[in-house]
Design a protein around this nucleic acid. Structure first.
Lengths: 249, 249
DNA sequence: CGATCGTTTGATCCGCATCAAGATAGGTGG
DNA sequence: CCACCTATCTTGATGCGGATCAAACGATCG
């Protein structure tokens, strides 16, 4: 049953049953409650994680004690792909649960030693990193060329596809605070951007979002966001993982 | 002789002589003159490249015909690592030579098919991508927290280490135009930031840069820039490649 | 010597950050 | 059920940094 689970994860999708069994024998499932840290900046890099359920915020401590969110990862996504690849011994970032989470925890030492017998996991990791790099670059481009409202519109559109929400109405999965941090804008700026979303065919009242005019939205949201590779890869996975996690834990 | 050359490249440093020979048989060395495009946005992804000599600008076309430089790569660095990993069929970015360049050109189809027999090139690629992702995130953090002058100071510091320049005085390798684009600021903003560098112990007159007070500089430049992994990995390689390229071409 | 490209400088404007205060909501306990 | 508290969000006023537009300056090259 758990074998099926693992193969549903993008990163293990090409692994055969023996490899999956091997991974299971050398890993365990842990939970991380909302608000708890999975690891902190400076901690030793000990494990590779894959999120089964929930969402985790990855962020840096800037010199001024300010938090700079580098990503929010959800079910199906992996944590520490970059540290694993860069052979860092200590974490450069913090990881904190923003909802109650369940994660698969694999010792990184073991992974490094058995990399060659884990199938084409390396190529899966490559894909993950390449996608994230691309996302990062698109994001920088956005910041240089778009207004806060447009950035927000892109993000909402992405969220909707990623989580397979009903475009006609859904509830924000995170606090606006967190979303602002993720988008590298201030809470206040995000608040002020909300009314402007009307022009893009998006209405937000409280934490309720609805796309009222997809035609308008499509015109303003950049095409790279509307058909993100990430979205396609994980679409439907989130809901699927919800079910599996119940069995898994 | 060329075998030695390839193994000097970070990405082939762990490959054995047979693997190097295999790569040589299936690749060729090309040149790309200053200003020429190696490929353009929308072109089919056909080859993987490693720069022997020179520097290439990678940039995106934004909707408004604006150029957004995502990176400037130099001797020893590889182009298309992300496209190879993400299995993209068409280029999302442009690559243009900003100096006369020599490159190793490897068919990407052949690479994909022979990935497993190319040694741990996959893990090298992982490292490259992880480093670039990290760089991208540090860069975003910089933009959110530092002034244009500080960003510029960090970059000059990085340049100096990367190219193994004499900190007491060196000449900018690129036009200020290009540097500004790379740093995602405007030419004018860069110009105006130059005088402010005095406060960080850096003097720039024309295209001549000199670090006059390293103590001051160290205080203002973020530590992530001063000891970049990239810098350490490629330090000295640039000068080495210069020699090799003469033999190679 | 004009022509082109790269750079600098000046004037102005706009968007976002910042600071400050008020509003809303969710939760707890009397 | 209401008063209270805290966390989250919104709104207002203000300022600053960098973008933008415009023009002059400098260098390089046929």
């Amino acid at each position: 049953m758990i074998q099926l689970t693992l193969q549903a994860l993008p990163i293990f999708s090409d692994s055969n049953p023996e490899q999956v069994a091997l991974i299971i024998r050398n890993s365990r499932i842990i939970t991380c409650d909302n608000g708890k840290f999975l690891f902190r900046h400076g901690d030793r890099v000990t494990h590779f994680y894959v999120i089964f359920r929930g969402a985790m915020q990855l962020f840096r401590d800037t010199p001024l004690g300010y938090e700079s969110t580098s990503n929010i990862l959800t079910a199906g996504e992996s944590i520490n792909a970059d540290e694993l690849a860069a052979c860092q011994t200590n974490h450069a970032i913090n990881a904190r649960a923003v909802t109650d989470c369940s994660l698969l925890e694999i010792p990184i030492l073991w992974m490094r030693e058995n990399f060659n017998i884990l199938g084409n996991m390396a190529s899966k990791l490559l894909t993950v990193l390449a996608d994230r790099l691309d996302d990062a670059q698109v994001e920088m481009e956005h910041h240089a060329t778009m207004s806060a409202a447009q950035i927000l519109a892109c993000y909402l559109q992405k969220l909707c596809v990623l989580y397979d929400y009903d475009p006609r109405g859904f509830v924000l999965p995170y606090t606006k605070q967190l979303i602002a941090s993720r988008l590298r804008i201030e809470r206040e700026t995000l608040s002020r951007a909300l009314p402007a979303l009307k022009d893009y065919g998006i209405t937000v009242t409280g934490s309720h979002v609805s796309f009222t005019d997809m035609h308008k939205t499509k015109n303003f949201v950049c095409e790279k966001c509307s058909v993100s590779k990430q979205c396609k890869a994980y679409r439907g996975l989130h809901t699927g993982m919800e079910k599996i996690s119940v069995r898994g834990t």
